[in-house]
Computed example of a mutant assay.
Amino acid sequence: MSKAISFTYSLDPPASVPAASATHNGVPVPTSGGESFPITPAQSSRSATHAFYTDASAQLLAVQARVNEVLTAWKDAIGDAEKHKEATGKVAYGQGKAQRLMQANKADEAAADDDEEEEDEESDE
């Protein structure tokens, strides 16, 4: 049995972005596909396990680089076409997305605390 690291992807770009617009080094990047990177350990003076993990680590870095190439090509092709999905209106200083998420989380925690207090009062009666 041969060992390999494989990945598949399937992207759904906006209809306004032509399929051939995503390229890497002048070659079009398809919206779906996959690749396999075989793990072929060389002889190691340490152990077979060491040889396997050394090659597996190198192949994993190759997979990461390839996935980055594919996703970057599509990110560049799409550009700002989907930015409206994240539009939050005018954001005041200190009110970035992280700050708003923290405030929402605090509000949820406060609501949960209120619910617990109401349950405690009901059980005391």
Score class of each variant (00 low, 15 high):
Met102Asn: 11
Asp108Pro: 00
Ala98Val: 04
Lys83Gly: 13
Lys106Ser: 14
Ala107Glu: 12
Val70Gln: 14
Glu86Tyr: 13
Glu86Ala: 12
Ala104Glu: 15
Thr88Asn: 12
Asp80Glu: 05
Asp108Trp: 06
Gly94Ser: 01
Gln99Gly: 03
Ala87Leu: 01
Ile78Tyr: 07
Thr88Ala: 12
Ala81Val: 11
Met102Thr: 11
Thr72Met: 12
Gly79Gln: 09
Lys85Trp: 07
Ala110Glu: 13
Ala92Arg: 08
Gln103Asn: 02
Ala73Lys: 11
Gln99Tyr: 11
Glu109His: 11
Asp108Arg: 10
Asn105Ser: 06
Met102Pro: 02
Ala110Ile: 00
Ala110Pro: 06
Thr88Tyr: 10
Thr88Gly: 14
Lys85Glu: 10
Ala73Thr: 05
Gly89Trp: 13
Gly89Thr: 11
Asn105Phe: 04
Lys106Arg: 11
Gly79Ile: 02
Met102His: 13
Trp74Thr: 11
Tyr93Asn: 04
Met102Ile: 01
Asn105Ala: 10
Val91Cys: 01
Ala81Leu: 06
Gly94Asp: 06
Asn105Trp: 03
Thr88Phe: 06
Lys83Cys: 01
Ala81Asp: 13
Thr72Gln: 15
Ala87Ile: 00
Ala81Thr: 10
Gly94Cys: 00
Val70Ile: 15
Thr88Leu: 09
Gly94Pro: 05
Asp80Ile: 00
Gly89Ala: 14
Gln95Tyr: 07
His84Ile: 00
Lys83Met: 03
Gly79Lys: 04
Gly89Glu: 15
Asp80Phe: 08
Leu101Ala: 06
Lys90Asn: 02
Trp74Gln: 11
Thr72Lys: 14
Asp108Met: 03
Leu71Ser: 12
Gly79Arg: 04
Lys90Phe: 02
Thr72Arg: 13
Asp108Tyr: 08
Gln95Val: 00
Asp76Ser: 11
Gln95Pro: 01
Ala77Ile: 03
Val91Pro: 01
Ala110Val: 03
Ala92Trp: 08
Ala73Asn: 14
Ala73Trp: 10
Asn105Lys: 08
Asp76Trp: 07
Ala92Thr: 01
Lys75Met: 11
Glu109Phe: 10
Gln95Ala: 04
Gln99Trp: 09
Leu71Asn: 07
Val70Ala: 11
Lys83His: 05
His84Leu: 01
Glu69Gly: 09
Leu71Cys: 14
Lys97His: 05
Ile78Gln: 08
Lys83Leu: 00
Lys106His: 13
Ala73Val: 06
Val91Arg: 10
Trp74Ala: 13
Lys106Val: 02
Ile78Leu: 04
